[in-house]
Design a protein around this nucleic acid. Sequence first.
DNA 1: CGCGTTTTTGAAGCCCCTCAAGTGTAGTGG
DNA 2: CCACTACACTTGAGGGGCTTCAAAAACGCG
Lengths: 251, 251
Amino acid sequence: MPNAFVRKLIAYAPLGDGDVRLLVEATGSPRRFAAHHDLICEGDQPRAVFVVLEGWACRYKILPGGARQITAFLMPGDFGDIHVGSLEEMDHNIGTLTDCEVAAIPQGHMDALIVATPDLTRAFWRAQLVDQSVLRSWIVSMGRRDAAQRVAHLMLEIYIRMRNVGLASAETCQMPLTQVVIADALGLTPVHINRILRDFRERSVMELRSGKLTITSIRDLVGVAEFDDGYLHRRIAQPSAGTATGLGAAG
Amino acid sequence: MPNAFVRKLIAYAPLGDGDVRLLVEATGSPRRFAAHHDLICEGDQPRAVFVVLEGWACRYKILPGGARQITAFLMPGDFGDIHVGSLEEMDHNIGTLTDCEVAAIPQGHMDALIVATPDLTRAFWRAQLVDQSVLRSWIVSMGRRDAAQRVAHLMLEIYIRMRNVGLASAETCQMPLTQVVIADALGLTPVHINRILRDFRERSVMELRSGKLTITSIRDLVGVAEFDDGYLHRRIAQPSAGTATGLGAAG
DNA sequence: CGCGTTTTTGAAGCCCCTCAAGTGTAGTGG
DNA sequence: CCACTACACTTGAGGGGCTTCAAAAACGCG
């Protein structure tokens, strides 16, 4: 079974054995990091593209008051900006949330990998577009969704992303985020996250327990999150069913 | 004087006459659009990369309840995703906010333009990284800054971006956004935006009047926005002065 | 001048925050 | 096996920032 990096990219474009071998070679010397370790900090000069093979990491910024805002989760298979080497310095931090296995692909190697074959090129481009789509989706959540909707939306996003790399079963997946981390991602307080989760648990919508997400009622969760919202306002209706939770990127 | 597209890209990498000619040719047949016109909608298949030469546009999503969230402003010189053609359909809308002059570069042409010369490649890559940086910056604002900070931060971002394409003077720039638009970008209500602006006006911090932004006290505005925040938490302090407002991307 | 859009202001209410304390739960060492 | 510690989770009470609702004033444009 190929690693999560390969599995993620295959979801964006069909990759031949040669392509897969290139990807595996590029991530051939991963390193292990403990939880809460910064891989790279604001102001550092980036030299390589990080690829998370195991565990969870995140992008985040710290504000003067000490508040933290997480801007993205990096789950198995996820990687940093493919062209990050053309920046003089990082404008945010990337740190592990759990114990991680991380490979660092030097920028020069990455540049070659992207154009190695047309399939790989397209896979990387799509991955990049999906990442941006998720960023926009987060902005929409923070701007126009209340706390319950944000939590529901994030949980669905995570569940689908985990499923896309083969790390989710029908109703559950690993979800090692603490309530503090969820709060820092959604722009809320841990206290309020706790109340939302209690409500979801009592209403049998979803449950977060000992690092595992269990979706009790996918219908209710999608309903709360208005997860299918984008489709409602299209000029041309798409009658295809099941697209709401089948997307590569979260709505 | 070259168009805003050229001016923006030159800010990211030095471009020779040949490069400039390629860019001017690519945007040679712009079209005019009235304000409040959708250039492309959610669900549409993208075929070209839009380049805003004059006027303002924005990316936005509409939620089931009818609420709008703007996820990015496209000012003169700004353009859409350079690889958007590898997506089957748009997941958000792009619409004009004012009368606009917009060029559409077909995806195939764009693919060639990006790799035409190393300088152009780097300019496009950096522009893309800055766009993502701005997206992350918006997430930070929505998550961890209060209303006054968000307004101040957005105004500074816009002012600097306008200055980068030569469209700002020492203290002012055109800013044709209504308070409703600002509210839809910051995840607030127009009523509250109005109160924030009144407060800034009364405290002689900044003023928004008849489509023009006037920064009365850049010091106060930077202070309110905590615009320099990122630098405070670097591992290695950078003693260089004046970087706070000299960045290509807003903090 | 007349009309639509934008801006402005007030009053009341709710969502989420802040502060504070208490309850698990896992790991460690005696 | 049980203290002890550290961390995460849980719950309550009170307050504040922003929203909602409503209406009037000002602006821009034919």
